[in-house]
Amino acid sequence: MITLRRVQKAFQTGSSRQDILHSVDLRIDPGEYVAIMGKSGSGKSTLLNILGALDSADSGEYILAGKPVHKMRQSKRTALRNTEIGFVFQQFQLIPNLSVYQNVLLPLTYGRKKLGRKKARVLQLLEEVGLADKKKQKPSRLSGGEKQRAAIARALVNEPSILLADEPTGSLDEATTETILQLFDRVHQQGTTIVVITHDQEVADRAQRVIHLKDGALA
C-alpha cells in the first residue's frame, strides 16, 4: 500500500522558486493499476520520482508497505529502489554501451535480493518480452518498441512489487503501444502494482483508476 500525505515539492532555479506539488494526498492499494494524467509541466514526473524514492518531498509523509520512506536514509532508499520498485521511462534509459542482456542483468548485479540463477532469470524475462534473439545487441540497434520491452524486462528482473512508468508509450506508435500495454496487463495480473503517467487516453483507459494532477494537487 502506498500512502502520500500532504506532500509538497518545490524547485529552486536561480532566484525563482517554483512550487510544483502543493499538497498531494494519495492512496494506492497493493496490486492496483493507476494512471496519472495532467498537463506537461504539471509535476507528474516529480510525483513519480517521489513515489520511486528517486527524489524526496520537501514535506509530507510517504508510507510504503507500512514503512516511512520520507524518514529513510539514502542507503535505505537505494535498497528500496532495488528491491521494491521497477522503473520504465519515456526515453527508455538503457545504458548504450551495454548489451540488452547486460542491461536487464544490471539490477541483479546491484542486487540485495538472493535470486537464484540470475542468468536464467534474465533469459526467461527476455523470452517473455520477445527479445530472446536480441539479447546480444546494443540498445542502439533496437526499435523503439524493442527498447521499451528491454527496459520493462529490466524493471521486472528483481520482481518488484511496484512498477512505475513515466510516459512509457510517449515515444512509440500505436501498434507498439499496444504490445507494451499488453505486457503491462500481464504484469498487473501477476499482482504487481502499476502507476503509469500518460497523456494518452487509450493508455489511461487500461488502468483501474485515473488520477488528474492539476495546480499541484490531485483531483
Binding site: 528491491t83 534509459q93 545504458i95 544490471l106 546491484y110
Partner: peptide, 16 residues
C-alpha cells in the same frame, strides 16, 4: 551522467 542516474535508480549505492 544518465548512465549514472540509471544505475542509481535501479539500486547502485553511492559507494558502488
Amino acid at each position: 551522467t544518465r548512465e549514472i542516474g540509471i544505475r542509481k535508480a535501479i539500486g547502485a549505492t553511492t559507494f558502488e
